[in-house]
Design a protein around this nucleic acid. Structure first.
Lengths: 219, 219
DNA sequence: TACTATCGATAGTGTTACTCTCAATAAGGA
DNA sequence: TCCTTATTGAGAGTAACACTATCGATAGTA
């Protein structure tokens, strides 16, 4: 198909498709002649993946490129790839200053209590964790810091589900795509579900009597 | 204190503080004379809150203003406020087109199976949920859609923890701040913890033998 | 032969979140 | 008192980002 059809099928403007090709998010099509290029189904699929990461996952273009590069990289094992993907996805913001040693220590203590002994204690996610801990403390919410273990347990059950899904795939590229999609769209999914569940539970608690549902948002 | 000290104590440049005041994220200080304004501890605290939302939560300035406006709004009950806060935080992204009816239906079915009967089925989070479902289907990952119930259960246990924390507060402003911080920083926390747990479990699974920990990210 | 579609490259646009500059004061030390 | 630094609000300027528009030269197609 030509660019017009690719655009029509994905809803992405042709100019944007050209931009993605230039930026290396989408492989160029097969060159037919001086000004003709042919695209295939794999371009449709890749384009949908890119749009999911950009629109729903809010990943900057540079991160998308970085993450997708892993798909083209054949000689890395899946465990290592998960590390790279997770790492790339953690820090779309650079910590202004590194977190305080005290907060990093708290983060390590949490991991210790969860029995998470296999992860390299230097991975960038630890800094995100320490950053959040530091900010909670600055805001005087030390009691929330004390409850992070509860969140960690929930995160572990989610991660187990993530990995189980991964094991249902056997093709390498499918595993990688599932990893990327599962991580990025999974975050969006979890935060939406958490907000809905908060409203539900809040409704149950504050309006404990029977009656029509509550939890009205914005009118 | 004057703006220089406020800047020094929070690490936020004075020009940025002025900008936040102009944008209504931070109340102006007490006017002392023509070109002197005095700030207090409440400004330090508010500034830290704003920075947590902007830097760690990646909220756009306009959303921060919207969410903070709820703190100044005295005549709304906590249940309603949670709805507003959750709603404001869901959609820092506008859906390009509305999600397909089929996907919204799937979202409702998930909520039905969770027993989430109290939430208004029209809240914006449903659209986020439906959007993710639609994209998963376009990517051929229907089996992931089938597993959303597992995520929903995890989200519910997290939301229960969120609400329990809220109940330890008695001052209204503290409750609201905890709600905002808990929701926004909680998202960052959960995604970091999920990534760490993924690496941990992946390490356990792929390198099942004993030895030094694995899950190296990027060297 | 018209007319539309396409090519890649480069320039331009709109948004966001700051950051700089200014002249008129005010504060604080020598 | 003098001198240096800090502060005020307002408006202009900036840097990054993600597109989007324009171009002349072709290619496909009624």
């Amino acid at each position: 198909m030509r660019i017009g059809e690719l655009s029509a099928r994905t809803g992405v403007p042709a100019a944007t498709i050209k931009y993605y090709v230039r930026e290396g998010l989408l492989p160029g099509g097969e060159r037919i002649s001086h000004n003709q290029v042919r695209y295939g189904e794999e371009h449709v699929r890749r384009l949908r993946l890119v749009r999911a990461l950009v629109e729903t996952g809010s990943l900057p273009i540079a991160k998308v490129r970085e993450v997708l590069a892993e798909i083209e990289e054949p000689d890395r094992d899946l465990d290592g790839t998960l590390g790279v993907v997770a790492g790339a996805l953690s820090a779309h913001w650079e910590p202004p200053q590194g977190p305080k040693a005290e907060d990093v220590e708290t983060a390590h203590a949490i991991m210790e209590r969860q029995g998470w002994h296999r992860v390299n204690p230097g991975i960038p996610q630890i800094n995100v964790l320490a950053d959040v801990i530091g900010r909670l403390r600055l805001l005087g919410m030390d009691d929330m810091v004390d409850r992070i273990d509860q969140y960690a347990r929930a995160a572990e059950t989610v991660a187990e589900a993530d990995l189980r899904l991964l094991f249902t795939r056997d093709d390498r590229d499918e595993i990688l795509e599932t990893m990327i999609v599962g991580t990025v769209l999974g975050d969006a999914l979890l935060s939406a579900l958490r907000r809905i569940a908060q409203v539900e539970i809040s409704g149950r608690t504050f309006n404990a009597r029977e009656g029509e549902p509550d939890g009205t948002a914005k009118g």
